[in-house]
Amino acid sequence: MTRLLLPLEHDPRTAERHDEDALLHALRRLPRRVQQVFLLNRLDQLGFAAIAARLDLPLISIERHMNQALQAARAPGDALASIAGQWYVRLQSPQVTASERIDFRRWLDANPDHLRAFHDTELRWRSLLAPARQLGHDGWYRQGRAALSLGGCSIAIGLGVAALVALGLLA
């Protein structure tokens, strides 16, 4: 008689937890600023313009960071999912034009796979809520620029010291 290593029936919650852990891991690998922009949008439900104003960043940077966060959750090498993700983020931007909306509609209607990829992107976006809550559980992302790592500060201090040395040598 042989023993089974795994139970015959799997608890679906275990697979769901594994997926959430994988998404959380993917989000944690993102740069801190990308995480911050993503969490401000996903958890605090701030729009792109509000995030840009709060962090003093151009809208295009917010859009790029959001795209990076969404792309981190997709399967690597899936070009169609990548395009659908770019459309998903672009359509949320306050700078999206009527012409771009028409282009999106044409892209969506061009192939049933496009609609499926866009729908999967929306589902992926929803699946990021639980990992986002874990990532931002302590509210670090609300602290503005101070929430970023000290790496940027040390670079600024180093540049300041270098400038003082250069000015001291020139004066």
Rank of each mutant, 00 (worst) to 15 (best):
L80N: 01
L46F: 13
V37H: 07
P131L: 14
P112M: 00
L159W: 01
Q143Y: 10
R54V: 04
I155Y: 10
Q68E: 15
G47I: 05
N67F: 11
G152P: 05
R17N: 09
A84E: 05
A52R: 06
S127M: 04
L30K: 09
T14S: 11
L108N: 08
T14E: 15
A132L: 03
T14K: 13
L108K: 04
A22E: 15
P112Y: 04
R29L: 15
S154Q: 14
R33F: 09
E20K: 11
R105C: 03
L150H: 09
A81H: 02
G160D: 08
S127W: 02
S82V: 07
G144L: 14
M66V: 02
L57T: 00
R145C: 05
S82R: 07
A72D: 03
G144A: 12
Q86D: 10
G168P: 04
E16D: 09
R145F: 11
M66N: 07
D113S: 10
G139C: 10
L5P: 01
P7D: 08
R33T: 01
A166H: 01
G77E: 09
P112E: 08
R54H: 14
A132D: 00
L59P: 04
V37T: 14
A166M: 10
G139Y: 12
L23K: 05
W107T: 01
A98M: 03
D109F: 06
Q86W: 04
Y88T: 01
W140T: 05
M1F: 04
D11H: 12
Q68W: 07
A162F: 06
L159R: 02
Q68D: 11
L5M: 11
L70G: 04
R32L: 15
L8R: 06
M1R: 04
R42P: 02
L30F: 13
Y88M: 03
E63V: 08
A79P: 00
Q134R: 15
H65N: 08
S82L: 10
D138S: 15
L128W: 08
H137W: 14
A146M: 08
Q95R: 11
P31A: 09
L24E: 12
W140F: 14
H18A: 15
D113Y: 07
A163K: 01
R105L: 09
L70W: 03
A53T: 10
R29I: 11
Y141P: 06
T2G: 03
R64A: 14
L4A: 14
V37C: 12
H25C: 14
F104N: 01
L167S: 00
R17P: 02
F104C: 03
H119E: 06
R105A: 14
G160R: 02
G85E: 04
